[in-house]
């Protein structure tokens, strides 16, 4: 496969033509914030945190779905990008009800970590304090929509890896939410295999195991690339 050489923040790098700017940035230890992206699942370009500037293009491009090109010059951390990224995080904080101090994922939350990393110490946006539901019907797992950032990792891991497609998105705009089985309570889901992958990929405390107290819900998503590879091997056979 052809290999392209290009620049990330002035640094010469190279990547196979099927690789993305995000792949190569990570390979070269260039930090790009991401939230919807997770290794092993199809990228959707939804959170817009990994957007970069590419010389010659007046549009910002999401690094997770932008394939490398010969000679491209990528800027990952301009002042403008930093500002937009902080605003994106602020938007997530105001659209939900994120109360870190009483959250099962406190200390293990990607949203919390990103805010720290990108220096979000407050927001000028208007807190919406929406009234959102909690589904604790399932005997092992629970979802707290107050903490959901709609990254759709659960939807994708359930469809792409587990093959159950229990999760999907319902409603639109600010009222969009992830649902199990056409919006029935999780306990009544006929498709859920209780594999728990959705719990592990959730970046926040939205999806969690019951009986976890504040800060106790650690996540382990390292199994994903392995499963993905195995599935591809299985499919090829």
């Amino acid at each position: 496969m052809p290999v392209k050489t290009f620049k990330i923040d002035g640094q010469d790098v190279s990547g196979r033509e099927d690789e993305t700017v995000l792949d190569i940035a990570r390979e070269n230890n260039v930090f790009l914030p991401t939230l919807c992206n997770i290794e092993g699942l199809k990228p959707v370009g939804a959170c817009r945190l990994c957007m970069v500037e590419v010389k010659g293009s007046n549009k910002l491009l999401p690094a997770c779905v932008t394939k490398v090109e010969e000679g491209m010059e990528v800027t990952t951390n301009s002042e403008r990008l930093q500002k937009y990224r902080r605003m994106i995080l602020e938007m997530l904080f105001v659209e939900g009800n994120h109360v870190c101090s009483v959250c099962v994922a406190n200390g293990h939350c990607e949203l919390q970590w990103l805010a720290e990393k990108l220096g979000v110490d407050h927001t000028r946006l208007n807190y919406m304090f929406p009234k959102k539901e909690i589904d604790v019907s399932h005997y092992r797992y629970a979802i707290d929509h107050n903490r959901c950032v709609l990254c759709t990792r659960c939807v994708r891991v359930c469809g792409e890896i587990e093959g159950a497609h229990t999760w999907d998105v319902s409603g639109r705009g600010i009222n969009a939410k992830v649902v199990t089985d056409l919006n029935t309570p999780w306990a009544l889901s006929e498709t859920c295999t209780e594999c728990g992958k959705c719990i592990q990929v959730c970046p926040t405390g939205a999806l969690f195991k019951k009986s976890r107290a504040v800060g106790e819900m650690t996540k382990d998503d390292h199994f994903l690339p392995y499963l993905k590879t195995m599935r591809e091997v299985d499919n090829a056979e």
Binding site: V99, S101, Y127
Partner: peptide, 15 residues
């Protein structure tokens, strides 16, 4: 602290 900055736990009443 979070209460001054975000409302935090007391703001759970806002709904």
């Amino acid at each position: 602290g979070d209460c001054a900055i975000t409302g935090n736990v007391p703001a759970m009443r806002n709904r």
